[in-house]
Design a protein around this nucleic acid. Structure first.
Lengths: 248, 248
DNA sequence: CGGTCTTTTGACTAAATTCAATAGGCGTGG
DNA sequence: CCACGCCTATTGAATTTAGTCAAAAGACCG
């Protein structure tokens, strides 16, 4: 999906260079100076490649580190009290996994690779120690957490109010925007997750997801080939996501 | 709803005493020693009473402070891109408003009093400065933020998966549990918000909320008198919230 | 090449929304 | 104190959306 060189040969342990990383302008250490960035890079350890389906974080295990997605993608899942699995987020490169466990002892979610992926591990104690001396880093951490709260709020609005069509359109636009932010094309990308995952995330049956994709394709809003999506008519999708067929 | 003495006569400015506050064991400064608590209390300023409908925080205004609910209750609302209002949370005493703006310049939500209420204002710069010297306070702040992330995740599961009946049962049980945590009865409380607010929060039409309340009452699960609710059969409600009528 | 998992599509069903009309509460002002 | 009006809540009937069940087609892996 992204920087394929990254997960074919791992960089030497403890020597991940943030400067060389294409994500540097969107990643957690956003806003650090070059010297600060070097100190930040120094705490990254055990760079980890993961294969499709592998767990980066297991719900219920102790919290020790945050993980930044360097390449590939992940889903964040919660197993609820009835032992059903719910997808609560999808993570793209430069996004941070584990924030919901900061300040807690235990991870409340699992994080699963959707494809061959690569993460930078940030041991939280080191991160804390470093951010004592780098206020910008602390600020970045706060920003990440509150951004996640915002995202959850937008999602709440979507799930509690929008029709299936609006949810789907919003989802596609959100993915598009996030790809664009990271320097990829907003018009075409891989959806590494299954229809069932999308359905779980959006609160729809997987059949509904499939039907909507087909409907959008018939209307020439998108083109689909398996998990590869092209957005053909962004304005129309935006119209769907905003006004589209208002309920309530 | 809670400590009525508190919002009839305001305590003297700058002299809110956390020690005297009944919420002390659930509030943000949880885990501070007596000496630390005193230093914490010293940064609380401009204690503010609010009347029903008054805005504590207005979406789009600059972030300066966190607010702890001391008495009364609030709703957190987002106005989305289509200018529709969505209730994203309800705040009870000892809960913190403004966390989604930490690390941001601007509030992304409004917070509105549901009844006569009282808040402790924590100017964020003071809080930050103090938490540099009190690691326990920083930890408490992290904990608050990640707890909010957890809550959002549970909500995501509820909204994306549960039937109207399960949502309603879960909502009532959540309110009950939160009242209980704060030393009030889990079996009876005021719902200070309107049916429309509950509907907006749960992603249901207000008519559906009303119908479900009636249905629950007919089944002797609850008793309603206006906005006063009694939970008559907690186990049955829990069964509804957990298994109740499984979809998907 | 066979088997399994994922996706698509159709027909039917059920749940929740919408529209509409009524009833209940609350505060204001006569 | 009662009457009026406004806002909130309740209840019913019809509609619509999305879910469930089922079957077939396609993709992927060994």
């Amino acid at each position: 999906m992204t920087d394929h060189s990254a997960h074919q040969a791992s960089p030497p342990t403890g020597q991940l260079q943030c400067q060389g990383c294409s994500l540097c302008t969107h990643c957690l250490p956003l806003g650090l100076g070059p010297e600060e960035l070097k100190r930040f890079a120094a705490i990254i350890d055990r760079p980890r490649p993961l294969k499709r389906g592998e767990l980066l974080v297991r719900q219920g295990t102790p919290f020790t580190s945050l993980y930044v997605v360097r390449s590939g993608s992940f889903k964040q899942v919660v197993v609820d009290s009835g032992y059903r699995e719910h997808v609560t987020h999808f993570l793209l490169p430069s996004e941070v996994a584990g924030l919901d466990a900061v300040g807690e002892a235990i991870h409340a979610t699992s994080v699963v690779a959707l494809e061959s992926s690569f993460v930078c591990e940030l041991p939280f104690t080191s991160l804390e120690a470093l951010s004592d001396r780098l206020p910008a880093l602390r600020g970045a951490l706060y920003r990440c957490m509150s951004q996640e709260l915002h995202r959850d709020q937008r999602l709440h609005c979507l799930l509690s109010f929008a029709t299936a069509e609006r949810r789907m359109a919003s989802f596609l636009l959100d993915m598009s925007a996030r790809h664009a932010e990271r320097g990829y094309s907003p018009f075409g990308f891989q959806l590494a997750m299954s229809r069932a995952d999308i359905g779980s995330f959006l609160g729809l049956a997987l059949e509904t997801v499939s039907r909507l994709m087909s409907r959008f394709q018939r209307r020439r809003l998108i083109a689909i080939e398996g998990r590869e999506v092209s957005l053909l008519d962004l304005p129309a999708l935006e119209a769907l996501a905003e006004q589209g067929d208002t309920r309530r």
